[in-house]
């Protein structure tokens, strides 16, 4: 099967890319192509113009900048998985990238594409939500930064305007002693789309409680934060009772659909199990649990 016809631009600078996006109606960025090419081949999409962002140097790589971890939008999932900086500051993102698709897909797929595509099951989304990440957007007319929990609007719908590119994802370096983990359940043990996924990040105890983030994937039209579950843990000791309450809250915050991969009932059950499992070792590994 062939791909629909399109024009392909391969700009080498960001400004050039933004100009094309601004001036060509219907133009769409292409990064790794692992989502876009599949959709085009299936004739679900046929954009007239593609803008390949792969030659823009500045868009890839992981760096530290002013107390923040900054990941260029065109950084591949494989690069993030292998990155020492990421392993050091956000092991939950390393884990998520390790469980993402297959090695060959990871070598092409980018984090920007994963977020922009806005699948409810996007595997980097729960870790990024748990890390309080924000999304850097640029267009010919300006730049803005959107917190990731406001970025996703619905299935495949985001805050991003058509003329904008995601240039980077950034998040504050988590405080010393923060623990984070990610898990996903798929219908097979490798190369599977998440039936549900979850990420937690728990900060060290501090005055007035602790920073708790619990984020879920594939259980609502967008990846979500389970805020009531977070509250159940933010004050008081994290014991078995608190963990069960958090798991229960997370399940009730989800609004999953029934589809080929699982019923809404199963997804809720799975969230309970995942959240419990993510929390227990986090707690066991620390003194205040």
């Amino acid at each position: 099967m062939t791909l629909p016809k399109f024009e392909l631009h391969r700009p080498e600078s960001l400004d050039e890319a933004l100009d094309i996006l601004a001036s060509s109606p219907g133009a769409v960025p292409i990064a790794g192509g692992t989502a876009l090419i599949v959709d085009m081949r299936g004739r679900r999409l046929s954009p007239p113009v593609l803008v390949d962002i792969g030659l823009i140097d500045r868009l890839s790589g992981v760096r530290i900048e002013g107390g923040e971890v900054v990941i260029g939008a065109a950084t591949t999932i494989a690069e993030i998985k292998e990155s020492d900086l990421i392993a050091q500051h956000s092991p939950l993102l390393s884990e998520a990238c390790g469980l993402f698709a297959s090695p060959s897909v990871r070598n092409r797929a980018t984090i920007g594409g994963n977020i922009a595509y806005a699948s409810p099951a996007a595997d980097t989304a729960p870790p990024l939500l748990a890390l309080d990440a924000s999304v850097e957007l640029a267009s010919a007319s300006g730049r803005r930064t959107v917190p990731i929990d406001r970025f996703f609007l619905g299935v495949r719908r985001t805050e991003r305007r058509d003329d904008e590119l995601i240039t980077a994802i950034r998040f504050p370096i988590p405080a010393e002693g923060t623990e984070g983990r990610f898990r996903k359940l798929g219908l097979r043990r490798a190369d599977a789309i998440s039936v549900v996924s979850a990420a937690v990040s728990i900060g060290p105890p501090a005055d007035g409680g602790r920073r708790v983030r619990i984020a879920l994937g594939a259980v609502a039209p967008t990846p979500i934060r389970a805020r009531r579950a977070e509250e159940a843990l933010s004050a008081g000791p994290i014991d078995e009772g608190a963990i069960l309450a958090a798991a229960e809250a997370a399940a009730s915050e989800a609004s999953p659909v029934s589809d080929l991969r699982g019923s809404d009932w199963y997804r809720r059950e799975a969230i309970r199990a995942l959240v419990r499992r993510l929390l227990r070792p986090v707690v066991e590994g620390r003194s205040d649990g």
Binding site: L8, G33, I37, D52, S104, V105, N107, R108
Partner: peptide, 10 residues
Amino acid sequence: VNSCLVLAWQ
């Protein structure tokens, strides 16, 4: 890489 997911121009 999976060559089916790479455009030749890329």
